[in-house]
């Protein structure tokens, strides 16, 4: 049994499970720096390049963005690892939400919710910016890549272009050897 608790699968699933329960006010995008620290810097399960590739593939695939953890789970501990990680991230928070909705704690006039939501908004924004900053430090190793990030950022802020087009254009530019 000790071998199980020492296994990468167990450690990854429990760590991500705990993070998913702490990530309030912002969803799971906000805990990316911690996920990176845990799987790349602490355990060396993934290289920087693999971590970024998994994050990017998760963004470019259909479905909720947080499911990029599926790829980390698969890489670290195979198909069971993928399923365990998804379950660890999804099940506890869904059970809590279900319980709170059922008992009527969530609901009412929403005063507490508003208070928490407004109170956590600056923290959430900062966590999201931290996530992108950590990614940028890993990805933008030269000015070509940094310029591509900047162009993508400006396009997404100033136009209504669909993100998938921007990521697709990035793939084409990369394939052409420009970054």
């Amino acid at each position: 049994m000790d071998a199980f608790f020492d296994s990468a699968l167990w450690q990854l699933a429990t760590h991500l499970g705990v993070l998913s329960m702490v990530a309030i006010g912002s969803g799971l995008g906000a805990v990316l720096p911690e996920v990176h620290r845990f799987v790349v810097e602490q355990h060396h399960w993934l290289s920087d390049e693999q971590f970024v590739a998994f994050y990017t593939l998760g963004q470019a695939s259909p479905g909720p963005n947080f499911l990029y953890v599926t790829l980390i789970g698969r890489h670290v501990a195979g198909w069971w690892g993928a399923l365990a990680v998804v379950a660890a991230v999804v099940v506890p928070s869904c059970l809590l939400t279900y319980f709170l909705v059922r008992t009527g704690v969530v609901g009412g006039d929403g005063r507490i919710q508003r208070l928490l939501k407004n109170g956590l908004a600056p923290v959430s924004a900062a966590l999201m910016l931290s996530s992108s900053w950590v990614l940028a430090n890993t990805v933008d190793k030269d000015w070509h890549a940094a310029l591509l990030t900047l162009i993508s950022l400006v396009l997404l802020l100033t136009t209504r272009i669909h993100p998938l087009w921007v990521i697709g254009a990035g793939a084409a530019i990369g394939l052409a050897g420009l970054v």
Partner: peptide, 18 residues
């Protein structure tokens, strides 16, 4: 190469959200 380009663009997406 393609993933490097995709990633650089995806970082822009994440920054834009923030």
């Amino acid at each position: 190469r393609a993933l490097t380009g995709m990633s650089a663009a995806a970082v822009g997406l994440s920054m834009a959200t923030g």
